[in-house]
Simulated assay, not measured.
Amino acid sequence: MKSRLFICLVLIFSAQVINAQSKAEKKDEKEANELKEYRHIQTIIDSKAFEFVGNWATTQKGRRINLIGNPNYLRVDGTKAEADLPYFGVAQVASYGGDAGINFNCDLSKYEVKKVDKKKRIVIKANASEGSEKFSLTLTVYPSGNTSLYIISSNRNSITYDGKLSKK
């Protein structure tokens, strides 16, 4: 009876050791995949030719709106940017007969890329303007290509878009 108990304990202990090794291997594999994805995103950002497409919009009051099926984008090509994003929120200054969305096609100013290697995150900041409206853009890109675009406008409340970044 004692020998059976001893064999069971040895089997349970060895199974846990094997499981622990596989957890460490899985963790290493996950980190290697994240690093590979991060390097891929870095090359896209360094090319300065990328496109952001939003899946969700979050208003300043916290309301989330699904954008899937609605055409929207922010395209960056060198120092130029083109955006056509829907806007949900409060406008302090409204133009008559204008489009309700965030639309611009202009040169970017104060374009700055900050790479946070420890967290495998890239933050892009830039300014854009269309007519009398000025926009401050903050794009936070995660290793998987998931991206958050935060826009502060001179004429409207801020808004955040969550979506994907891809090569243009």
Rank of each mutant, 00 (worst) to 15 (best):
L85S: 01
S14I: 08
D46K: 14
V141D: 07
S132G: 06
V53T: 15
K119Y: 12
P143M: 05
G54F: 01
D162T: 14
I12Y: 09
K115E: 11
F6D: 13
L74I: 06
S148C: 04
S47R: 09
T58Q: 14
A126W: 02
F13D: 11
I151L: 09
K114E: 11
Y142M: 11
E51G: 01
Q16I: 13
R39I: 11
N33Y: 10
P86V: 03
A128Y: 06
Q21G: 13
E34C: 02
W56V: 07
L149E: 03
A20I: 04
L35K: 12
C106I: 08
A128S: 05
K26N: 13
L85I: 04
K27P: 03
K80I: 00
E112F: 03
A91T: 10
I45G: 00
V123E: 07
A49L: 10
K164T: 02
K30N: 12
C106F: 05
T43R: 15
K168P: 05
I152H: 12
Y150H: 15
S154R: 06
G69H: 08
T147F: 02
K27W: 04
L11K: 08
A20Q: 06
Q92C: 06
Y96K: 15
V90C: 01
N66V: 03
E133V: 07
S47N: 12
I44T: 04
T147P: 04
R4Q: 15
N155L: 09
E51T: 14
K80Y: 06
K164L: 08
E133G: 04
N72C: 00
G131F: 08
D117E: 14
V123C: 02
F50P: 07
K26A: 08
L67P: 00
G97I: 09
L149C: 07
K168Q: 12
L5M: 09
I68S: 07
V116S: 13
T58P: 06
C106H: 08
L137S: 04
G163K: 05
V17Y: 09
D107G: 12
S144W: 00
